[in-house]
Design a protein around this nucleic acid. Sequence first.
DNA 1: TAAATTTGTTAGACTAGTCTAACTTTATTA
DNA 2: TAATAAAGTTAGACTAGTCTAACAAATTTA
Lengths: 219, 219
Amino acid sequence: MSMISFTEENYLKALLRISFDSGETGVGTNELALHLGVKPATANDMLKRLRDKALVDFEKYKKITLTREGKNIATEVIRKHRLWETFLYEKLEFSWDEVHDVAEQLEHIQSSKLIDKLEKFLDYPAFDPHGDPIPSKGGELTKQFRKTLLDIPVGQLCKMVAVKDNSSAFLQYVVKVGLGINNEIHVKSRQEFDALMVIEVNGVESSVSEKFAENIYVV
Amino acid sequence: MSMISFTEENYLKALLRISFDSGETGVGTNELALHLGVKPATANDMLKRLRDKALVDFEKYKKITLTREGKNIATEVIRKHRLWETFLYEKLEFSWDEVHDVAEQLEHIQSSKLIDKLEKFLDYPAFDPHGDPIPSKGGELTKQFRKTLLDIPVGQLCKMVAVKDNSSAFLQYVVKVGLGINNEIHVKSRQEFDALMVIEVNGVESSVSEKFAENIYVV
DNA sequence: TAAATTTGTTAGACTAGTCTAACTTTATTA
DNA sequence: TAATAAAGTTAGACTAGTCTAACAAATTTA
């Protein structure tokens, strides 16, 4: 029942996300610092504190991994984040691209009663508005295999179900292209040279880059 | 649009509450420190910082008052607090005595969009679960005149509408006596010597102290 | 009104979280 | 494999917010 700060929670969450996304267990100091928008020196200091609290395993010049306890805390933060996103989207009529930044704040509210009641109020949702799975209480972060827009061959139809990048910047771009969750996407053509794709959404054609396409999850 | 921290918000809120409750404009350093659970030296340091930000007027050895801007911020924090309390009580089925502590955290979430949407979702409530008025957007903290249980003569009936002290400790005691918002209270007798009262709530009699009675608002 | 008490202030120290600049270790590549 | 580059660490400094201990001003009261 040790006190855990907002900042510490953010470091743990970042470690879980990075290792989850990369598929590798160990995370590097620079990688972590970049993800959090701090300097490597700062991350290094914090990692020593987290090691003292037995939340990460970390030896000098080696990769960082979460301990069981660290992983539990990180998973709980992600669970809270996704439940709050769902609340903002479903109950408060936030748009799909606005929920993330507010949920970044709400995820740190400390009250297990609050999050249990919220989950019940939302009727135990399985996915957040970006299509990401919401871990169950005391559960694990699960990975479902996901196709991106990049995997869809020319001429085929697909449906957007989620995004990889949750930043406001990206999400607003997505909206600008006329794309939203559950929208049908028709892949019209693809340039061999730079993988630039032309897609059609609701009758409107747009060109999107490889970087864009790999951040859109589809079925 | 200067950055204002949780801590600063709490100091401003405390200043508004103390001056509001005491009816006097100026607040003392010790009084403020006591209310916030910090040492007077700490409060003094913070007051200098708040003065630098033009949020309080404060001269050495004089009483502290909020500036216009300081008062606006404090009122907004109280508005957020009371809206969140209403949400917790009405939507998440929190009991009346549990809402305060969680709202203490939620009141610091920075997003005017969030609070506007929340207010709409709750259908623009005028009072929180403790019967305190919720300031309107950009509005003032208003005081309605309030009778306490202490003002009720022996033999008379009254109805509880709010409490003065919002601490969990007090609220749990209130619940233990079988009292809740909108409950009818019958004042059965009062001791001259120490003002100890015997009251009846839902057919059950209890003895309550003067201190207890003056924290129960009634109509 | 002078002494005692209360109230408020200052100085110096500590922690968490951040930085820059310099340094060391590990990994890459010519 | 030796030089270069990338990744990671350390040392020292800064801010916000807190403390204790000592001191100063204002207020109360004998």
